[in-house]
């Protein structure tokens, strides 16, 4: 019993880590540019297909593929920002959001035209064989996903706190005017933000596609991640991580204790409860007041 429960938590955490990575992408772009990018899930899907092509059609090795996929995803993020978002940056936020929804449809359809709507298996270096450690029971895959996600999150943390560019990104999120006066190219920061968000989405895609298989509709996982981001308090980076992880675990446990129907709505029940009790989300910024 205990063993089954712990394995539920671990495998939920693995899914949750992927939600967290995608949620991070949402939050980074939102914090920097006030735009909610509804094409975030499509970055995940696209990276799955990119790595599939590189692995199967070109036969490259896994680590090379991972690296190339991250870079290509990042470039895709920049292109999306330059082509879709920047030209209408002065339009109402609502219009920009609609534009990102349009971009997501275009990406999804393009993948469908190029690869078809069939489900494809994406190879991975993490096996699905079980590991046992005391009461803990999980797969190499679970451990690999959790480990990789934590590495990415740590790398991001170091980037934001230890590098000048990371600091400039945080500064820009707080005041674009002041950042410009400091000599920061705000447009450059926007592009970089999209690149990083898309690249994180790319990592999420390479991690999740082997688990849930690859198809043009893979991007709908972004909806769950979005809920995770709101749960954590949209706009909070730790919130996105904790929100995503919590969601993964909660889904698994509710599926175990109840049924598939409850599992499906558990996300939204939790979301409503949290928003009623704490409207700003778990980590909602208690706004730092300026005197």
């Amino acid at each position: 019993m205990v063993e089954i429960l712990t394995s539920q938590v671990v495998s939920g955490l693995a899914t949750g880590c992927v939600y967290a990575l995608i949620a991070l992408g949402f939050v980074l772009i939102f914090k920097a540019t006030d735009v909610v990018n509804f094409a975030q899930g499509e970055f995940v899907m696209a990276s799955g297909f990119i790595s599939y092509t590189l692995l199967i059609r070109f036969g490259l090795s896994y680590w090379v593929v991972l690296l190339v996929t991250i870079v290509v995803s990042g470039v895709m993020g920049v292109i999306l920002e330059r082509v879709v978002v920047r030209p209408i940056m002065d339009a109402p936020i609502f219009s920009i959001v609609i534009a990102t929804i349009g971009a997501s449809t275009v990406l999804r359809s393009s993948a469908g035209i190029v690869y078809g709507y069939d489900v494809l298996p994406l190879p991975t270096i993490f096996s699905k064989d079980p590991i046992r450690m005391g009461v803990l029971s999980f797969t190499v895959m679970d451990a690999g996903v959790i480990g990789s996600s934590l590495v990415i999150m740590m790398a991001l943390y170091l980037f934001f706190t230890r590098t000048k560019t990371g600091m400039a990104m945080r500064a820009t999120a707080q005041s674009q005017t002041a950042a410009r006066l400091m000599g920061v190219s705000v447009k450059g920061i926007f592009s970089l933000t999209w690149a990083i968000s898309a690249a994180i989405g790319g990592v999420a895609g390479v991690l999740i596609a082997p688990i849930i298989y690859l198809d043009p509709n893979l991007g709908v996982i972004g909806v769950k991640a979005f809920a995770g981001a709101i749960l954590g308090g949209f706009g909070s980076i730790p919130g996105a991580i904790v929100g995503g992880m919590l969601l993964g675990i909660l889904e698994n446990l509710s599926g175990y204790f109840f049924n598939a129907g409850i599992k499906q709505v558990s996300t939204y029940i939790l979301l409503i409860v949290v928003l009623v009790v704490r409207p700003s989300g778990l980590f909602g910024a208690v706004a730092v007041k300026r005197v």
């Binding site: 089954i4 899914t15 599926g255 598939a260």
Partner: peptide
Amino acid sequence: EVDYKRADIDFSSQAAKLKE
């Protein structure tokens, strides 16, 4: 008897119930 929904992607809770 364990069920799932059409769009579900994770069956770890179903697996646990089946094993039990």
